[in-house]
Design a protein around this nucleic acid. Structure first.
Length: 430
RNA sequence: GUGAUUGUAGCUCAGUUGGUUAGAGCGCCAGGUUGUGGCCCUGGAGGCCGGGGGUUCGAGUCCCCUCAUUCACCCCA
């Protein structure tokens, strides 16, 4: 074991796996663009207050999971971003995007940081892709982001995902419901665990998704938010469901789905994967009409969005065998040199091939021909080009197809022409 | 933050009631074939047995501490 290892909760992604990431990222870029979203990249750290205000001081993320530090003794505290939405909204407000146009559709792929104990599907540094639709508040807008998210899953070939959806109503609805909940739970102090008691004061909605069996029994008899929704809120939700049904997106309504972040209102949703173990949420999101005001905006900027955990997505895809067809190919040509005196000549040819756009490789360690051949085989080269005294003197080179073991002798010009032709045929873009 | 789990070669793992120089398979390197790979055969390299302390004539094996891993809780992607 080496002296240094990756920091707890972080990991390295080696080339083979990077190919999987690129494949997924490609689809995210393509589909997001197709749906009219443009990419935004924001800093990995922000002033700590942004998250405190944006995510909410009662949340676990802000309460105990942030990596915060002081860049200089007199400086303001900054925090490695634990989620994306607050930063994106901040950027949009700072740039005064809404004075240019009322509506903005942004998407992102980026790294996040949360100080939690690592476990299956959970790291301290992880990645999410997501989209934010800023400036409109409507069922169509929520349906738009959900559809994009599900579209990505579908394009990747994922199956068996479960989309749960709920409505949290608007601020008024929730305020009335909140009181009802407090009234209902208050008599059961001895049944409630410590966390639930605290939530009873600060955010009683969160008691609903408690996993404590005793608490769950209570929750079963609790009043339903549904009954406290005003007609317009109910209509709003039903319209969202209508859009989903129309697009043949399967969902289940889950009245206990609350989600941990304070800024949600109306629709909230979550997608889980059976492949994931305890941390089975692969993506989630909702509508957050109040966030902009919370961040100091003088005007309302209603919004909705989603975020998908890249690592969890990749794990699920791996489990479902969706990377099987993804085999990164090696160089097109491996230049094998017979004698070390000819190594420079071989190098020169290798570079000629590369200049002609032919992916080429050569042994730089001065190993035996056998070793070079084995290497060519291992890195899955298509052809081997032999450079020996014979080739050097005649200018005619032997090219061997490793798959068929057939070998031909060609001049350098003919070689380049041939390889360029087969290269376009055999190496389609990723 | 809490609980449990596992640390022996690059990887997957053996290692008997504590007993000499710690093993296998795969991988890696070399040779068999001094101009030809995958298969096969032969050989080789590679281990502070996670780290520290203790018990013992003797510790990979037993005890304590520590670090790390993994899984779960909490919560979330």
């Amino acid at each position: 074991m080496s002296e240094y290892q990756a920091v707890k909760g972080t990991r390295d992604i080696f080339p083979e796996e990077v190919a999987q990431w690129r494949y997924v990222e490609e689809i995210v870029h393509t589909l997001s663009t197709l749906c009219g979203f443009s990419e935004i990249r924001t800093p990995v750290f922000e002033y700590t207050e942004l998250f405190q205000r944006g995510i909410g001081p009662t949340t676990d993320i802000v309460g105990k999971e942030m990596f915060s530090f002081l860049p200089d003794p007199k400086g303001r505290s900054v925090t490695l971003r634990p989620e994306m939405t607050a930063g994106v909204m901040r950027a949009a407000l700072q740039k005064k995007l809404f004075s240019l146009a009322p509506l903005h559709k942004l998407y992102y792929i980026g790294e996040l940081f949360r100080k939690e104990r690592p476990q299956a599907g959970r790291q301290r540094q992880f990645s999410q892709f997501g989209a934010e639709l800023l400036g409109v508040s409507s069922p169509a807008a929520v349906a738009e982001v959900i559809t994009l998210m599900m579209q990505v899953f579908e394009s990747l070939g994922l199956t068996g995902l479960k989309l749960r959806i709920n409505t949290l109503g608007d601020t008024e609805d929730r305020l009335r419901y909140r009181e009802a909940l407090q009234l209902y739970f208050s008599p059961f102090q001895e049944i409630l665990d410590d966390a639930s008691k605290e939530r009873l004061e600060k955010n009683p909605l969160r008691i609903l998704d408690s996993k404590n069996p005793a608490v769950q029994e209570l929750v079963a008899g609790a009043p339903r938010l549904y009954d406290y929704l005003k007609a317009s809120s109910l209509q709003d939700f039903e319209k969202v469901l209508f859009y989903l049904a129309e697009r043949e997106i399967a969902y289940v309504i889950d009245h206990r789905l609350v989600r941990g972040l304070d800024y949600y209102s109306h629709t909230a949703f979550e997608v889980s994967s059976a492949e994931l173990g305890a941390q089975d949420a692969i993506g989630g999101g909702g509508r957050y009409d109040g966030l902009a005001r919370e961040l100091g905006s003088s005007a309302d900027v209603p919004a909705s969005g989603f975020a998908v955990g890249m690592e969890r997505l990749l794990i699920t895809m791996e489990k479902q065998g969706l990377f099987a067809a993804l085999h990164p190919h090696g160089p097109h040509v491996y230049v094998v040199v017979q004698q070390q005196e000819l190594a420079d000549h071989a190098l020169q040819i290798t570079w000629q091939l590369r200049k002609a756009g032919i992916k080429s490789e050569m042994d730089l360690a001065g190993r035996s021909m056998k070793a070079q051949m084995r290497d060519a085989n291992r890195i899955r080269a298509s052809y081997v080009l032999f450079v020996g005294t014979m080739e050097y003197s005649t200018g005619l080179y032997s090219l061997k197809n490793l798959a068929t073991s057939r070998q031909t002798t060609l001049s350098l010009e003919a070689l380049l022409q041939f390889l360029q032709e087969v290269a376009v045929k055999e190496q389609p873009a990723l």
